[in-house]
């Protein structure tokens, strides 16, 4: 599913709500049958760790940590997802290879990779342990047009293989064709910002 919206339209806030990092003041957030707004904060964090893989626009990774540690980080907080992933290191390496990252990359500090490579590592991190939902916040905006296409192709391929749903936020309408559903944020949300 693609969520389209201009900047300032509340996309990021909506993502924070969906991921359960921020609790809604009013209204409810449901994942399937689960109302995460009703959960305690700790349970929401656990829920996010188990069920959601997150990809940011950029600066996805802890730059000082090795690629492998970055990929395995979400498993640290999600025992069930860790169990699903099987051998974490092997799985991480498999994902790296599938995403076209060079073989020896897993022990380099993430900060030394190119932006394109970092985004792919972020995909690997989001996909490890096959969480049901992948949330991607404009993951291609930091990439140039050619890399964007390859990146999206790889992303779709891996998401399909993991049987995860992909919720992607973008302002780029051309991406619409690739998704099953496209929602314009102005159709579902009215954003009011209080004057500072």
């Amino acid at each position: 599913m693609l969520l389209l919206g201009a900047s300032g339209s509340g996309k990021s806030t909506l993502l924070s709500l969906i991921c359960g990092i921020v609790a809604a003041d009013q209204g409810k957030v449901h994942h399937g049958d689960v109302d995460i707004g009703a959960m305690r904060a700790g349970a929401r964090d656990r829920f996010r760790a188990e069920r959601i893989g997150v990809i940011f626009q950029q600066f996805n990774l802890l730059p000082y940590a090795r690629v492998i540690d970055n990929i395995l980080l979400p498993l640290r907080f999600a025992p069930e997802r860790r169990a699903r992933a099987g051998n974490g290191t092997t799985e991480a390496k498999r994902l790296c290879a599938a995403l076209g990252l060079p073989a020896g990359v897993s022990h380099t500090p993430a900060g030394q990779l190119s932006v394109g490579q970092q985004q792919r590592v972020a995909v690997a991190r989001a996909l490890i342990g096959s969480p049901p939902l992948i949330v991607a916040d404009e993951p291609t905006s930091a990439l140039d047009a050619a890399t964007q296409d390859t990146f999206l192709a790889l992303l779709f391929e891996q998401v399909t293989e993991a049987h995860s749903s992909l919720l992607m936020v973008s302002h780029d309408e051309r991406l619409g064709d690739r998704f099953d559903r496209v929602i314009r944020i102005e159709d579902v949300v009215s954003t009011v910002r209080e004057a500072a």
Partner: peptide, 16 residues
Amino acid sequence: RREMAIWRAMGARPAV
């Protein structure tokens, strides 16, 4: 703050 946001997004509780 960026780094903290990554930790949070990965499911780290604020206590972490």
